[in-house]
Nucleic acid binder design. Structure first.
Lengths: 247, 247
DNA sequence: TTCAATTGCTGATGCAGTAAACAGTTTAGG
DNA sequence: CCTAAACTGTTTACTGCATCAGCAATTGAA
């Protein structure tokens, strides 16, 4: 029970992974393929960037190549795998943290900033990663590796570094979500109406009401820097503590 | 452009919100309605709990009441709004933080623990909240209010408290995601295969490889406590700093 | 040259959400 | 009391989706 996502994940796992890693022997006989998984993924990304994730259907993607929908299935097992490829596609290139110097805090901050940039540049990424299971391809692993590398000087255990990584990713995703909601003007109406309701039920939400009165949720500082600093101050405290313990 | 989610969110926003808040004047004339939005939402939740979010279709939900799919549209504008109701339904009841005493750290920790319990009890919640825009109903606002209230003793600004809230939610959601991936046995195969690939390309992922060798990502402590402590240590540092500034 | 492998196509299937029109039920207002 | 309006649930139908099955054309290996 609790078969959370798509129930039909029974398709050959090996094939999907080989696809993600680009490790499939191409055929010798037969007509030359006119497409590649990568090109298909690129087209899908362009479509999603322009019209949102819902606009990405096998038909529409195929249409950009003047090809029938079923042709895509010669390159990609199904739509889910296509989404995986899309994700890998926009994560291409491991983040470059060298601009942040040697300081691990600066490096983690830079990592978060670049990650956020990706999310903001592709508004569908949030939905896409939530839709699919945690199926990490090489590019995604590259980002993970970069973050863990930045955290190595902290001296934390692998598990601890992983937790910190999760904290930072969570922050980035939340900020991305937030900035998506923010400039969606059709949500203004919604916020206005909810605001009215909130006033009417102010007694049920005392802290929230007070917070709104206090200037509300308009960020006064760079939210990313704030969040990362908060996390990393916590990490620093952890380092100090374990250092004190071990000495 | 970048019309992230469903393109057809043009349906009357006022009606959806009235539905969420239960603020709709019920009719006098006509046959007595045999259903209520709340009962429909409950049935949908049961379905999602048992068979996953994908199993929640208007048809299946309607079938549990021996009613045609279209009958549901007399109570709910569309599927999106139904999902919103499902979310509100399982968040019913504001979290009770009194067991944690007066300490704000303990209260925030307790909030996170209860929140995580909800996510883990309803494996579809992650996907559902990611699918929908940030459309908070009263129950969701209640959780937000409780968190903000717990953070009031910190003396942080409203915006800062909101950021901390986002950090904690991000943490909880990541942990939920993680524990979902963990006990999904059909992902074992996937992890095994990816592990092999990773070994073969160890040079591309030095930090990751080393981390795996170091005992990997098996959590050695309570991940929730670790994350919350990390965040709250950061908050404490922030408090100390601003206290020093103002004095 | 022959044949097996491979590509891309057409057509069909099943399920999803939902719009429209309709038939039956209840109550407010004359 | 009676009619008209409001309301409920149904049937039918439309659109779009992912995907399966089978076919025709192409191409390298034998």
């Amino acid at each position: 029970m609790a078969r959370n996502q798509k129930a039909k994940e029974t398709r050959d796992a090996g094939a999907s992974i080989a696809l993600l890693w680009g490790e499939q022997d191409q055929p010798t006989r037969g007509p030359k393929p006119s497409l590649t998984p990568a090109r298909i993924a690129q087209a899908a990304v362009a479509l999603a960037d322009a019209e949102g994730l819902d606009a990405v259907s096998m038909n529409k993607v195929a249409a950009t190549f003047d090809v029938s929908a079923m042709a895509l299935y010669r390159y990609v097992p199904g739509k889910g795998e296509l989404v995986d490829l899309m994700i890998e596609s926009i994560l291409a290139g491991r983040p470059d943290l060298s601009v942040a110097g040697e300081d691990w805090r600066a490096q983690v901050t830079e990592w978060a900033r670049q990650c956020l940039r990706v999310y903001q540049g592709h508004s569908w990424l949030l939905a896409a990663t939530a839709m699919r299971r945690q199926a990490m391809g090489p590019q995604q692993l590259g980002w993970l590796d970069a973050a863990l590398a930045a955290l190595e000087p902290t001296g934390l255990t692998a598990a601890q570094r992983h937790h910190v990584f999760l904290l930072v990713v969570g922050l980035v995703r939340n900020l991305a979500q937030q900035s998506l909601d923010f400039d969606a003007e059709r949500d203004r109406e919604w916020n206005r109406l909810t605001g009215e309701l909130l006033e009417r039920h102010a007694d049920r939400f005392p802290a929230l009401t007070k917070a709104l009165a206090d200037g509300g949720f308009v960020p006064d500082t760079d939210p990313l820097a704030f969040g990362v600093d908060c996390i990393l101050d916590g990490v620093q405290a952890l380092i100090d503590r374990s250092g004190a313990t071990s000495s």
